[in-house]
Design a protein around this nucleic acid. Structure first.
Length: 470
RNA sequence: GGUCCCAUCGUCUAGAGGCCCAGGACGUGGCCCUCUCAAGGCUAAAACACGGGUUCGACUCCCGUUGGGACCGCCA
């Protein structure tokens, strides 16, 4: 039975890198009908906040990465860690260290300056008696000889020389446990079978393996995912732009598009680019995960998002776009729209909208009372030349009762045939009259969606605008 | 500085020794479609980091060089 976990520390929002780690864990669990656990690693009390715990959960929910157990919190489990620490202490597998943090930091700096490895020198390793008046930290006694092999599902076999391993601190002098210890204890306690995490943890793995051994537990399987980099090839961070998952929600991305993008960063399935969730679950495997780091490319994410918008139904989009209509002030507060009408309007715009924000704004000229002319468009198309056609169109449209795209087209056709002009000669001025712009969906569609009343009003306005001009 | 990881178009990647003078996707240019803009279709430019082996034959295997990254905390 596969049991995996995503274990973020609540020191920030759920970011792109964390989301991908969560996603790969989730996919592996789903693929194997296993259990996906959410565990909050909040042992660093100075940096962890409740707000960030909520933010991470919110991000997971938005991406629809549901977990089967948890969220567990490490701060709820201090007694467990203490018990295990006692055990190691009693067995001589851990020892008290009385060195002060400042002393350690100083020694580390000195070692670095001298070009030596900034490793703990082990001076408290064989201390017999406690030093009174000092609160000690607890260090793990790491073996100094031999080698430790990590058989990674992605990276393959990596061998570490134990001589380079540090006697790491497993419990701070204030009695709180540290990361490298709590992960092991929790992964043991929660029966985790596969540890799937970023490859920034690969170097920690041999140390953790020794802790498993000392505790007398079986070592789980490891899968270390390559990092996500920014355009400058350094680890993705705030300075590369938006990295928080929720920022993408606000920018009008669909969660499925982000998931699809993230999964293709380091994973592939032949030439396929777009996957449903079910396909992802079905196809996922570690042997298709690449070993090298990947650069985050917002352009491709944007393209994927446009594809997801195109492939979504107008009804689904109508649901999603409403918050953006308010935020972009396309509708006023409290204003509601007819669902059926909105869906039809969206159908005309979805293939030219890459985000929900763009979609919301594209609906503006259908919804608002008035349009604002683009200056260049106005000069080019709303002039003496188009005036008679606009007047004729308006007069013709007044009389038709069936305001369908087909009927509207008939009106256009009869006018252009009568005058021997091209459709563009009429359509472009009308487009400017209707939308204020030179680009829009098909003009018959635009007129139909806007409706008779708005259409006549806008044509009148355009005519007046031309007539007033000297 | 040490340890570890990685290396195919600008970017994401396919490629498990002959299928590859390297395929797909984003982006970029061109053409088609067309009432405009998109979408869609077609098309072009664009890569196996370098050097040694192994082999009849290397993008694929081995070694080295170079380059990049991560980690070396009483952070996770």
């Amino acid at each position: 039975m596969v049991r995996v976990r995503f274990a973020p520390s609540p020191t920030g929002h759920l970011h792109i890198g964390g989301a991908r780690t969560a996603l790969f864990n989730w996919l592996y669990a789903k693929h194997n009908k296993g259990t996906f656990i959410l565990r909050i690693e909040d042992t660093d009390r100075t940096r962890s906040t409740e707000e960030y715990i909520d933010a991470i959960i919110e991000g997971m929910k938005w991406l629809d990465l549901d977990w089967d157990e948890g969220p567990y919190r490490q701060t709820d489990r201090f007694d467990v860690y203490r018990r295990y620490t006692e055990k190691l202490l009693n067995e001589g597998k851990a020892y008290y260290c009385y060195c002060l943090p400042e002393e350690l930091e100083q020694r580390r700096q000195e070692a670095l300056v001298q070009g030596k490895s900034p490793k703990y020198d082990g001076r408290c390793r064989n201390l017999q008696d406690p030093i009174p008046g000092k609160n000690p930290a607890v260090r793990f006694r790491m073996p100094r000889e031999g080698e430790t092999a990590v058989n990674d599902l992605i990276k393959g076999k990596t061998v570490f020389d134990n001589a380079y391993l540090d006697d790491l601190i497993i419990m701070r002098s204030d009695g709180t446990p540290t990361y490298n210890f709590t992960v092991v204890v929790d992964d043991v306690d929660m029966n985790i079978t596969h540890v799937i995490r970023g490859d920034d943890h690969l170097n920690n793995t041999p140390k953790q393996i020794h802790i498993y051994n000392a505790l007398g537990y079986e070592v789980p399987l490891f899968a270390h995912l390559p990092m996500i980099l920014g355009a400058d090839k350094t680890r993705l961070s705030k300075r590369h732009g938006a990295v928080s998952v929720m920022a993408y929600k606000e920018m009008g991305y669909l969660p499925d598009a982000l998931v699809n993008y993230l999964v293709r960063l380091g994973w592939s399935y032949g030439d396929q680019e777009i996957f449903t969730r079910d396909e992802l679950i079905q196809y996922f495997s570690f042997d298709k995960v690449g070993k090298s780091a990947a650069v985050f490319n917002p352009e491709k994410l944007l393209w994927l998002n446009s594809q997801y918008i195109i492939n979504s139904s107008a009804e689904e989009l109508a649901e999603m776009v409403v918050p953006f209509l308010s935020k972009e002030k396309v509708i006023s507060e409290g204003q509601t729209l007819d669902k059926e009408w909105l869906s039809k309007a969206i159908d005309t715009q979805k293939e030219r909208s890459r985000t929900l924000i763009e979609l919301a704004n594209s609906l503006r000229y259908y919804i608002s009372e008035d349009v604002e002319y683009n200056e260049k468009a106005k000069i080019k198309f709303l002039n003496e030349k188009s005036l008679p056609y606009l007047i004729e169109l308006k007069d013709s449209l007044v009389s038709i009762s069936d305001f369908s795209a087909l009927e509207i087209e008939k009106v256009f056709t009869s006018i252009i045939e009568k005058h021997g002009i091209k459709l563009g000669n009429l359509a472009q001025p009308v487009r400017v009259a209707m939308t204020g712009k030179t680009e829009s969906p098909g003009i018959f569609e635009v007129i139909k969606i806007a409706g008779k009343e708005k259409t006549l009003k806008r044509l009148e306005k355009a005519i007046k605008t031309i007539e007033i001009k000297p």
